[in-house]
Amino acid sequence: MYTQAMDIPDDSGKKLAAVSNAPSEQEAAFEARIDADGRIEPQDWMPEAYRKTLVRQISQHAHSEIVGMLPEGNWISRAPSLKRKAILIAKVQDEGGHGLYLYSAAETLGTSRDQMLEGLHSGKAKYSSIFNYPTLNWADVGVIGWLVDGAAIMNQVPLCRCSYGPYARAMVRVCKEESFHQRQGYEALLVMMKGTDEQRAMVQDAVNRYWWKCLAMFGPPDADSPHSAQGMRWGIKRISNDDLRQKFIDATVPQAKVLGVTLPDPALKWNEARGHYDYGQIDWAEFWNTVEGNGPCNKERLATRVKAHNDGQWVRDAAQAYARKQKERALKEAA
């Protein structure tokens, strides 16, 4: 996944409006390149606010991938067949890879992975709120692939054309790998829907719990989305939250029909005049509450990341100490 609510403000975002005092000539060149749909590369001059927004967005994206390993990882040990186990490990591993590509992209902006992890671990940096919900039955794994990854792809494909070169290139890589994620999820659900009543009930239960959360994943409505306009202007964000959400719903409804599940929204119906599906009210209070840290799994997710990092300290130290010793030995030999 898992871009989505990328314009969730965090502490670094608050200073976004700071006026850069760079020479206007550089600024003009930058703006001109953006207007011409050109790419910005790490060494190019860029406004401080652009840099900060990018670091915030890319690191949020990277954190989402890493935290996103946990809800699905929850079912690796219990996958009901060896084939599904292998698929799930490969998928969760891919998410780790995506996090890694994205951290690397953000590092080109002069922020180290340490600093980004520090932001995540201290709770300052955000990640996609969808991962703060529990995975309660095996079908959740399929539903996350189908709906959550499906929603993410909507977001990610446009980012392949993002104005910042390293981010756009990372996203090309991510999207290439991501295409298997949604398909494997949908296919796993198809098999379950053709199975026993219990299996079908598992799928419907998972859809019921995840549908609304997925719609919220696209972020607040455009009217309430303070960063969107600037992000669009800079080519960091390509399509608005509401447009993406609509696109996702329009694409998903027919898929749900093929699958044979009911999407839990009585207001969901085709609007001939708009040429789109209408849908009901998203519970934004619940969304913000989760973003603020009060969702069902926020504390577990974060604490687990912090623990993995802290428990791994001695391992990282060991590799470093060994590399240093080897270097010293080589120097001694040369002397």
């Binding site: 390993m69 990882g73 969760v92 780790g96 993995a308 791994g312």
Partner: peptide
Amino acid sequence: AEWCGHGPILEED
């Protein structure tokens, strides 16, 4: 596979 998501560093995961 129990380490998946809990490795000492992302690369090692």
